[in-house]
Simulated assay, not measured.
Amino acid sequence: MQTILYARVSTADQTIAHQRKQAEAAGFKIDQVVADEGVSGVSTVLSERPQGRRLFDMLRAGDVLVVRWVDRLGRNYADVTETVREFMRRGIVVRTVINGMTFDGATTDPVQMAVRDALIGFMAATAQAQAEATKEAQRAGIEHAKERDDAYLGRKPSYTREQLDDVVARLGRDEPVLSIAKATGISRGTVYRIRDNRAEAEAAIARWTE
Results as ranks from 00 to 15, higher is better:
138 Q>N: 12
209 T>L: 08
147 E>V: 07
172 G>V: 09
168 V>Q: 08
5 L>A: 07
163 Q>F: 08
91 G>K: 04
9 V>Y: 05
114 A>W: 12
92 I>C: 03
14 Q>H: 08
174 D>Q: 13
159 Y>R: 08
113 M>W: 09
137 A>F: 06
121 G>L: 12
19 Q>C: 05
29 K>P: 00
128 Q>T: 05
87 F>G: 00
89 R>E: 13
148 R>I: 11
32 Q>T: 12
145 A>R: 00
136 E>K: 15
207 R>V: 07
76 N>S: 13
20 R>Y: 02
141 G>M: 03
66 V>G: 03
159 Y>P: 03
47 S>K: 11
107 T>E: 07
135 K>C: 04
166 D>I: 03
131 A>M: 11
154 G>A: 11
24 E>R: 11
58 M>C: 12
42 V>E: 12
201 A>T: 03
102 T>R: 13
176 P>Y: 06
82 E>K: 15
140 A>F: 11
66 V>K: 01
150 D>A: 14
25 A>F: 01
143 E>L: 15
16 I>R: 08
23 A>I: 05
184 T>D: 02
200 E>S: 04
10 S>A: 15
20 R>K: 15
103 F>C: 03
161 R>Q: 14
92 I>W: 00
152 Y>P: 00
183 A>I: 01
179 S>Y: 03
6 Y>S: 03
73 L>V: 10
193 R>N: 14
5 L>G: 02
45 V>S: 12
